[in-house]
Amino acid sequence: MAGGAASGGDATSDAYAPARGWLLLPAWLVLGLVVLVPVFLMLVYSFLTKEFRGGVIWEFSLAAYDQFFIDRGLFGDDPPRIEWAYIQIFWRSIWQAGVATLLCLIIGFPTAYFIATRPAQQRNIWVFLITIPYWVNLLIRTVSMRFILRDQGPLNDFLQWVGVIGEPLTIINTNLGVQIGLFYSYLPFMVLPLYAAIERYNFALSEAAADLYAPRHKILTRVVLPAVKPGLIAGCILVFVPSLGSFLAPDLLGGARNFMIGSLIDEQFKGSAGNWPFGAAASMILLTLVLLVLMVLARQQARAARGAG
């Protein structure tokens, strides 16, 4: 089952087997040329020499990775030490993506569970309500969040009106702003795969546990959670990975002092830094991280699926 899910399900017939090379050709061509080859080019670029104000000179250089990991002082002649600045940006991004994943799980799991325990007719309506924000423009959603969280925005107005706070809270341009933004951006990405897993869960198992006098919270943690673990992992991937490389939330809600990996990369290409090899190197490091996370979780998922099946 795990192998089937990882390869997009099994084929249902082999009627088109003779033509499959031709049928796959357009997809191979487009994705190979516009996605796969470019990723290799990006790896190549990360080992090239930077050209002033964007672009590269085709000369091998380790300067990008050197700049990322090693601090040689302002004039480049100090004894080399570890450069912490970029590692810190990566660490903070991992941390914030992790917290966002946890927050999404805390709100997302009860939501998915609640929806899955509704009668079939109602379930569709609930899922539909989660699906709309899933597909709606992320830029506009982030802009709305910025509008809400402003110093003179509706949230502060409301909190002052209730009397919880005297002075408006500054949330925009802080790490908290970024954190809220990430959570808000990817919340539906947690609910939908979780729901899909819980919906398939056979509640007769809960019934059996209840017959054996298991208390309700034990049924949840010892029976339901292990059974829906693949969905749990899928949800965590779908929140963690885009959060890690997120650009809009840190840019629109964090400002200049709350850099994440996405902002660092963006600055090399679109911003003032203009250091393409360094941007390519940072992207490669991000990609490596993501692939590592995916591999670990895919293995977990395969194990969970084997355990359940």
């Binding site: 990882a6 390869s7 997009g8 399900g9 099994d10 084929a11 249902t12 017939s13 082999d14 009627a15 088109y16 087997a17 033509a19 499959r20 090379g21 049928l23 796959l24 997809a27 191979w28 994705l31 190979g32 996605v35 796969l36 470019p38 990723v39 990006m42 990975v241 885009p242 890690l244 490389g245 997120s246 650009f247 990996i261 996405g262 990369i265 963006d266 992207s283 991000l286 990609l287 993501v290 995916l294």
Partner: peptide, 30 residues
Amino acid sequence: LAMVRGGRFKLRTATFGLISLPILVPEIVT
């Protein structure tokens, strides 16, 4: 058509990986 009606073949998993690549890789990397 090839993936669902094309039976089993060697590059099937790799092809599915290629197709999913833009979803799996962070957008900024793409």
